[in-house]
Write a protein that binds this DNA or RNA. Structure first.
Lengths: 338, 338
DNA sequence: AATAGTTTTGCAAATGTTTTCATTTTTCGG
DNA sequence: CCGAAAAATGAAAACATTTGCAAAACTATT
């Protein structure tokens, strides 16, 4: 870490001025090929690496995009992060990643930190954020994007799906198959607009079909197979069982399936199960999971395009995108017989 | 993005010098409380946000750590990234994340980019990397850490598990239960030392038990449930079936389980299956997956400690850590009857 | 060979901070 | 209320770059 070569060292070694070295990097066409060669040689010899921090203070873009997510280690966000990150990488940006654990105060703090790093843009998951966060972002005038969820009237452009609609679709489907005794299993709603919208969608669809949900059948667990499995295990311990379980996402559905399998309850013969998300693996689950497809990879890729557009157009572009949720009818949810 | 407040704007507004403002941030005890209050007020009024890029060129740490992974959207790396990132966040760092898709050339390019951003340290997954990458890192003298895998003689400190041992353990276990007809299903070995080490461990353990693996039973698929399921489906289409399938990781094992379940083959009665990794969900799979535990969260957390130590001790600390793989005997692998 | 035009280079100022050192202000014991 | 010591502040240099402008070095035309 001692005397790392800087641009003037390179200049000296190549017997040119620092300006020329700088130009040789940033506007190679402005410097004579022969000179460029000398410089390249010097660069290699000294192991010089450009200092983006020093460039950044000239108003040059930092080449970083802040991505702030609730959590990383969830199948679905991982997929989103992957596609987002590889798409922005392709465009020459690098991702500054942070997770707040569904705590919107922490999200604000992280946003600030990102701005200290002078990210060129930021992506947030969902539409609901603390007021401070929104103010900060718009006051600092940083290209910002809301991922995953979509609303036309959100304070920033959204690239995502309609989570209410997702819930509504699945509720409608389950009710349409004749189910009346329906349980739900969702994560805590606090600070998670995706989940609460989905649940509202489900409830509305059911109510529209004349079904009221029983509060004892509305389970709430974190997003893990383990939690969901044990919640469903105790749900079915009672004689008074529902005929279908609507899960807030596919991970919860997997947990439910394992619980039923371990109790020897056949899906979908004796009990229907549905997910939301259509994660990797849900299609190949046995039996294949009926769920709502929310195209994480597409969202990631489109979002990447969108931020970059926002950045390069100084926020003038119209980049929102609504990806419609889609019902995937597979094997875990069947018509109520009898 | 126009006239964002800078430190001199704040200074003017607070009627003090820039030096004082700077001090008020970095050494608050050196400035009079009253002055500090004036400054804080000005900061708030102008919406000033410190510019880390400008700090960084003073040799001050950038507060970022580069993490370069093969892929993000795999259960297991997601877990690792999550724990690593939240642990470093706690210590005031932010993660610069990039993925190379198991391509070590790209890894080198990404490493360079990280260095351009003047990350304070970098973490790489696995022990095998291109020579250029190693040279770059040691020549630039950046605190570097190898995660996930462990070897005493690696060029940089490792925080990880012994993947050969992991493979060996599971091979031994399966052979010890009397299985002789054993299939394996592993990802492509290219650029993935974890996978190749595991496979070597398995093969060695089997050979030691006098078992040679048949090449037609050595399946190779990417890390997805879908790929694994279809590979296993065609494997069992033949009459000449193995009695056990050793999978390179838990995702592959899940795929295998679904394949068997869809073919109506009982696990473990008719076929044993094992994984490696002990991912979230494997314990609650039905039947619960016998696997080798590799403690991703612990590795992430320890690795975070380690890099930060490396950074703050200028590379003088001895931070390597070997987390032993552990056999988790559950329900998917039973003794061969008859 | 001289001129005009073009290409290539260097100088110096600018970027937003931190830090050393010197100066000013405050505090406090007499 | 004086002076010494301590505390607080400011001026200026430093950090690693980029860039506008001007000078220098070529080319081509006559």
């Amino acid at each position: 870490m001692k005397d790392q070569a800087d641009i003037v060292a390179v200049a000296k070694a190549a017997r040119v001025s620092p300006s020329t070295v700088s130009r040789s990097f940033n506007h190679p066409d402005l410097v004579k090929p022969a000179t460029r060669k000398k410089i390249d040689a010097a660069v290699r010899r000294l192991g010089y690496i450009r200092n983006r921090a020093a460039q950044t203070i000239h108003g040059i873009r930092s080449g970083t995009i802040g991505l702030i997510v609730p959590t990383i280690d969830q199948a679905i966000f991982a997929e989103l992060i992957q596609s987002f990150s590889s798409a922005v990488e392709e465009k020459g940006f690098t991702i500054l990643l942070a997770s707040h654990g569904y705590n919107l105060e922490r999200e604000y703090a992280l946003t600030r930190k990102m701005l200290e790093h002078r990210v060129d843009g930021v992506g947030l998951i969902g539409i609901e954020h603390s007021n401070d966060t929104f103010e900060l972002l718009s006051q600092q005038n940083v290209p910002s994007l809301l991922l995953w969820n979509y609303a036309a009237d959100a304070p920033f452009p959204c690239v995502g799906s309609d989570n209410y609609q997702a819930g509504f679709l699945i509720g409608q489907h389950v009710a349409g198959l004749g189910h009346r005794r329906i349980a739900t299993i969702f994560p805590p709603q606090e600070g998670n607009d995706r989940a609460s919208l989905r649940l509202r969608g489900v409830t509305d669809a059911l109510r529209q079909a004349g079904i009221e949900t029983r509060s004892t059948w509305c389970l709430e667990t974190p997003y893990t197979v383990a939690a969901s499995k044990s919640a469903v295990l105790s749900l079915i311990a009672s004689d008074d069982r529902p005929s279908a379980i609507i899960c807030g996402n596919d991970v919860l559905a997997w947990g439910a399936m394992h619980a039923l399998s371990s109790a020897g309850i056949d899906v979908p013969q004796q009990m229907s199960v549905t997910g939301i998300g259509d994660f990797n693996g849900s299609k190949d689950f046995e039996p294949a999971l009926t769920t709502i497809r929310i195209p994480a990879r597409t969202i990631g890729a489109k979002a990447a395009d969108a931020v970059v557009q926002l950045i390069t157009s100084a926020g003038q572009a119209d980049v929102g995108a609504l990806l419609l949720p889609e019902l995937m009818v597979r094997q875990t949810c069947s018509a109520l017989s009898g």
